[in-house]
Amino acid sequence: MNTKILCLTRGGEGSYPNQDGAIAIAKERGQDIMFLYISNIEFLDHTAAPKVIDIETELDELGEFMLIMAQERASNAGVTAKTLVRRGFFREVLSDVIEENNFETVILGSSSGDTGIIDEDLLHEVTCEVHQKYEIEFIILFEGNILKTYQVETGAELEQEEGKDD
């Protein structure tokens, strides 16, 4: 498998800058990229009304649509992109996908900003955990720019100024 970069994305307008940032990194490194969409229906646990719809399938289809949009952005930039839709919790799915593939770099969007939903502490915790376990590079993007990287060689966490692309 040639794809060495994994990019988690939720799709939609708020994700476009980070998708473009990830595509730029892939292009710079001359590598393919895989976009991963994770759906989670835990939110249904907080409602009391009847849930008779196969909502997981609906969300899978939504995810596939979102990822085709990301794939088109990559294609327009001359980067080959693959897509993957998975169900479950962010932490578990990320580990599973990394374990199943041979990624060298994982790109995530920062939980900062208006549209972030993953708690900052959780993002940091999971990133550190998976980074150490699989010894792969992690890049955190914010509005398309590199906010933070977790390097493989040194294990060091490198913070960068917002807006300063590496």
Binding site: R10, G12, F43, T47, A48, A49, K51, L59, T115
Partner: peptide, 19 residues
Amino acid sequence: GEANLVTAGITNQTSTPIT
């Protein structure tokens, strides 16, 4: 309402969540 909550849950799966 329940419909509001479930819709918010679905939009949270994208980068255009309802605030």
